[in-house]
Design a protein around this nucleic acid. Sequence first.
DNA 1: ACAAATTTGTTCGTATGTATG
DNA 2: ACATACATACGAACAAATTTG
Lengths: 237, 237
Amino acid sequence: MEQDGIALWRQIEQTILGEIEGKRIKPGARLPSEHDLALRFGVNRHTARRALQALSERGVIRIEKGRGSFVESSMVDYRIAPRTRFSENIARVSRTPSGELVRSLELTADPLMAEALNIDIGAPVILLETMGIADGQRISLGAHYFAKSRFAKILHHYSRLGSITKALAKMGVTDYLRKTTRISARMPDKREARLLRQKPTEPVLIVESVNVDPQGRPIEYGVACMSCARTQLIVDF
Amino acid sequence: MEQDGIALWRQIEQTILGEIEGKRIKPGARLPSEHDLALRFGVNRHTARRALQALSERGVIRIEKGRGSFVESSMVDYRIAPRTRFSENIARVSRTPSGELVRSLELTADPLMAEALNIDIGAPVILLETMGIADGQRISLGAHYFAKSRFAKILHHYSRLGSITKALAKMGVTDYLRKTTRISARMPDKREARLLRQKPTEPVLIVESVNVDPQGRPIEYGVACMSCARTQLIVDF
DNA sequence: ACAAATTTGTTCGTATGTATG
DNA sequence: ACATACATACGAACAAATTTG
């Protein structure tokens, strides 16, 4: 049975996952039938089936009764580097990036925002909530906080340009970089799951970052909530 | 009530969270009672209670009936940088690091391992599974894969030294750095939840990395599974 | 319209190793 | 040391959906 401490079906899962991630099986392609996989790995059909089930739970494949198992459109590698920009990030993997404003509102700085933006607690803050989309797939729900004192017109520019980088450029910020990045994960609330079109039983990655201008002054405090079935963070140094 | 699009209790949750993360309320300390918090924020006790409930679900505080709410021992900031080492990482935040071997076994390289370690599929691989502990709290369950051809004696050295960095040094690898890092999240399986002493309903962060020597040759392929209630990843550039 | 073949889904039964108390 | 529960793995059979001839 389990000769080397790792369950057979897990090994099979890993092997197939590797073939999918390495693009040796392409997105949309049909996997061999359960029967064939069982033959190939020399196991019972149940064991092969278990591996497929696990891949399906990961969102890597989709199983259709009577038809077979199919590789889902691949995960987006979201690169985190000092100059991460959403649109560049998505464009690099030859996908069509698009942003959409979910809502925008004004509020007053709570201690977290105040510290990140280096403003007083209670100072006015503008929040832009955006949906990041790649090839029609909803990738991230981002909350972007700006000090109103400096970026009062951010909403105006963003709604015309559809890009935070471009909106900031209009306001004299031609360059900025990532100062801190904190990554965690949790279960989504109902609203997040609905907006990201994902199951509420699947976790989301939370990426918190502060962007500063070349002089080190805080520009933006952002909290992104990413579907972890559709994205994978890649850290570049 | 919800004057600016974000529920009151969420704002209170954020404010208290900020105070906890900023160490203005220290680990182990008792929070003000629900009644006092309600007075402070000018809301009904139920609203304050909702915020506490949310913090408790996040694992940030622990609520004891009839006694009060207490700040859990704080989250560990786990830094990811080119030279990340577990023990240095934990020592920096003045905690006691310790490692523990969960199990070790030999297996043959699946496509994922083979690519990462630059060896043939099916080549012998040594797996060390370790538990990373900080201040008695279980932080991470790490799977470390080494090519047996080069690191046949890794288990021998690790079991005497209790540190992978030191074991590698014994084998001539005095320096190594992180080549790639991929971060994702998922629900833990039962074994992972049990070993990490966490609820199976709480997600785990998955950090996959390849460490290489200064010449760029792969040394170790690692997959760490981290309790995301107790850790937060910080990316440093 | 129908039959046959293929493929996934489900339910029995049996056996074994591992973890827990 | 023992009993119990659980996950793993194999085997056989049949049901349900889909495709093909």
